[in-house]
């Protein structure tokens, strides 16, 4: 093609002959873009409020624990309990932000644009899950790390809880993965953000209520063994039982007693099954969305 000659008022159209990277780069770019979106970075000030308020709330127990350690020289919160105690905050973050990651692309029909690029449906779903997983992990790992740094700095008599900290970080990864899969899968079924938020929070409340009520009923009937299983209806206790207790042998969170023996194994199976189910639902959902 001929370049315009003798034109000085406009530099004209310049062709691009630089690097064209592959699907991996595009998928990573989408994941980073989505992660920024989840925290409202690069968006309006209003969309930063909810995520950052929740991050602040998540940090509170860590700060309070550090204060307790520093002032009255007593041990603060246990690392592996953190997620279970703060489960409502994690659930609210998941409910409010996972629709943010997927709903606009459906509602404003950005999805066809992504699919007109080299990325595949799998890449798209993978990037969204990675972004939400990273967001949930940060939400949990940052306060845990702050708490650990505080503990090291204050240096109470006795051992530092390094193993417990590392266990809780592995647990954070487990929580992040399971919650992100559940949240994104539920949120992807509606292009309406409000509906997505309501669905995720309703699912969490249902699971947590059913689990608590069932536990109460079974315990009052004196069936402690069956009651222990009731905890595993709540996804937060599933990860605690599977990762913290099952893999690393930590003590269960707060006053919970998990089913002995196969309990942790079953929790692990439940966790993997829920992740698998969510990913399958996501792929089916997006196959349908893409064919429209």
């Amino acid at each position: 093609m001929s370049e315009p000659t003798g034109v000085i008022h406009d530099i004209g159209y310049r062709h691009y002959d630089g690097a064209r990277l592959g699907r991996g780069h595009a998928t990573a770019a989408l994941a980073v873009h989505s992660l920024r979106g989840i925290f409202g970075l690069g968006r309006t000030a209003r969309s930063k409020i909810i995520p950052f308020v929740l991050v602040g709330v998540m940090l509170l127990p860590a700060v309070v624990s550090i204060a307790i350690m520093a002032l009255i020289k007593q041990e603060g919160m246990r690392y592996t309990e953190y997620a279970v105690i703060m489960q409502a905050v994690l659930a609210i973050f998941l409910a409010s932000q996972s629709p943010y990651a997927v709903a606009p692309d459906l509602r404003f029909r950005v999805l066809p644009l992504y699919l007109s690029r080299p990325v595949t449906l799998w890449d798209y779903v993978g990037a969204k899950l990675a972004a939400m997983t990273a967001a949930m992990f940060l939400l949990l790992a940052v306060p845990l790390t702050v708490l650990f740094v505080g503990e090291v700095v204050i240096d109470l008599p006795g051992d530092t809880h390094t193993v417990e900290y590392l266990t809780s970080m592995a647990g954070a990864a487990g929580y992040a993965l399971l919650l992100a899969c559940l949240g994104i899968a539920v949120a992807s079924f509606t292009p309406r953000r409000g509906l997505g938020v309501a669905s995720v929070i309703a699912l969490y409340l249902l699971a947590s209520a059913v689990s608590t009520v069932l536990f109460g009923v079974l315990e009052s009937m004196g069936d402690d063994a069956a009651a222990a299983w009731a905890w595993l209806i709540n996804p937060f206790f599933v990860v605690d039982a599977a990762v913290h207790v099952g893999i690393f042998g930590a003590t269960p969170a707060s006053n919970v007693i998990y089913p002995p023996g196969a309990g942790s194994l079953v929790a692990g199976v439940i966790m993997i099954a829920l992740i698998g189910l969510s990913v399958t639902a996501l792929i089916a959902r997006y196959r349908k969305a893409a064919s429209r």
């Binding site: 690097a19 064209r20 990277l21 595009a26 989408l30 873009h33």
Partner: peptide
């Protein structure tokens, strides 16, 4: 910019 990256262009490009 985001759509350019989705097509495989590095960030600065």
């Amino acid at each position: 910019v985001h759509m350019a990256q989705m097509s495989g262009l590095p960030r600065t490009a």
